[in-house]
Design a protein around this nucleic acid. Structure first.
Lengths: 234, 234
DNA sequence: CGACCATTTGATATGGATCAAGCGATGTGG
DNA sequence: CCACATCGCTTGATCCATATCAAATGGTCG
């Protein structure tokens, strides 16, 4: 049970300040993926403050991560400065596994978060020794693939459809019944769904007008009428 | 070396007639994935005629496929009748591997195609016996995941950017130098890139006007100026 | 030659982006 | 404890890229 040394933790400034618009999606990131944070591999939990970079694009992918508390965005800034968010990770989710040796996206803490960090090499040798672990890794990747496929479908839909799907997915992942505690700011949602912050805001207002949701505060959303939302989630 | 019985081959009509607009992307579908069509598993090649269904959404995923000649589209028709194309497969590409027991998309031959079909169970038992095969399967899935990630990025870009990326990708996958023999009709490209057929056509015309490409015929596209295209492929 | 289908081109409509304020909550300093 | 600055969000006005509707053109096959 090695206590891990965490050296690629770039603690400096937030790399960039949230700029423009992105992409979205969020299917179930599976509990099944418990190879990180299992007793065998448990690493030390590390805290990250709001907007802190966990790892950067193109840096060596030497560690694998699991969210204990808080939330994480995986993102990339394009040539022209537009930011895209590829995925959000919530408590229980594992992220940062790459087949490549380098990360293809950056990871940042959305709010103050605690993350368990495990050496990739440790996980890999475990997989080499244990076919079951190897299989779970494959299953994990396949599940992420499915999520991306859903995301691709989502991104050619209308703003209402994207937002509705996003809310339903978020509720599911947070195991929220009626009221969602939205973990990320509007700009992140916009950059995830490939819309602007103004469109997110207006769409939420529309959904409220249609009585599909209620907005007690900007970070709280009540799903009053799941059917109405599901109908949009073609 | 079992010669495979191919029973889920729905040969009837084309299921649906190409309707509306879709999605796009296309990264390298790796030669590395040679577990299908290897001597060990070689199945009988089967021919499919234009628009013939190879498998349908929600049907049991009992086989895995490899394109020998021709080309294949993986697609889905949404509630509202809009069609989305998730991926194209070209000679050498493997498709139809699912972790689930059912296919999540349909597969159709774009033109007359020959396809090698292998029993999924055979592939799986090979993977269980041989860790290297298992690893290659994982790598294969990871590569598809990367392609989908790229696709997600693509889908929030402009029409010109999407078409330019599509052409560059197609050229790469076809190992085409200058002139591409486009294997699919405009409607398929539209449904893949999440644009309309009119927009595809207009965008190609624009690119021709900008001297980035030439259009000797609708199924032939010459990449006159890759730099101009790459510049668009942010 | 004529029918059919795929593609292109044209005219117009529209969803979401962009530009620009306003508003409410939180925090700081006086 | 209150005035003010800041930040994240909402709302309004206008613009533009792409969709939609419609028609012309071109290519293929019997």
């Amino acid at each position: 049970m090695p206590s891990l040394t965490i050296e690629p933790l770039v603690r400096p400034s937030l790399g960039y300040t949230p700029e423009r618009r992105p992409q979205v999606q969020s299917r179930s990131v599976p509990a099944a993926a418990d190879f990180v944070g299992s007793t065998k591999l448990a690493g030390a939990p590390v805290s990250f403050s709001r907007n802190e970079v966990i790892y950067s694009e193109n840096r060596p992918a030497d560690y694998v991560y699991k969210v204990i508390s808080g939330s994480v965005r995986i993102c990339k800034v394009l040539n022209d400065g537009r930011r895209r968010i590829e995925a959000f990770y919530l408590p229980g989710d594992v992220f940062g596994i790459e087949m490549d040796d380098a990360h293809h996206f950056s990871a940042e803490a959305i709010a103050h978060s605690t993350i368990v960090v495990v050496k990739r090499s440790a996980l890999m040798s475990l997989a080499n020794a244990d076919a079951d672990v190897a299989r779970r890794l494959w299953t994990f990747t396949a599940r992420e693939l499915r999520r991306m496929q859903d995301r691709v479908l989502l991104l050619t839909k209308t703003a209402q459809e994207r937002v509705a799907s996003f809310l339903l997915d978020l509720a599911k992942r947070l195991a929220a019944d009626e009221e969602i505690e939205v973990p990320m700011p509007r700009q992140d949602i916009a950059d995830y769904l490939g819309l602007t912050i103004e469109t997110i805001s207006r769409t939420l207002t529309q959904l409220e007008t249609q009585a599909a949701i209620a907005l007690p505060s900007s970070r709280r959303i009540v799903l009053c009428n799941r059917n109405a939302l599901s109908r949009l989630d073609a």
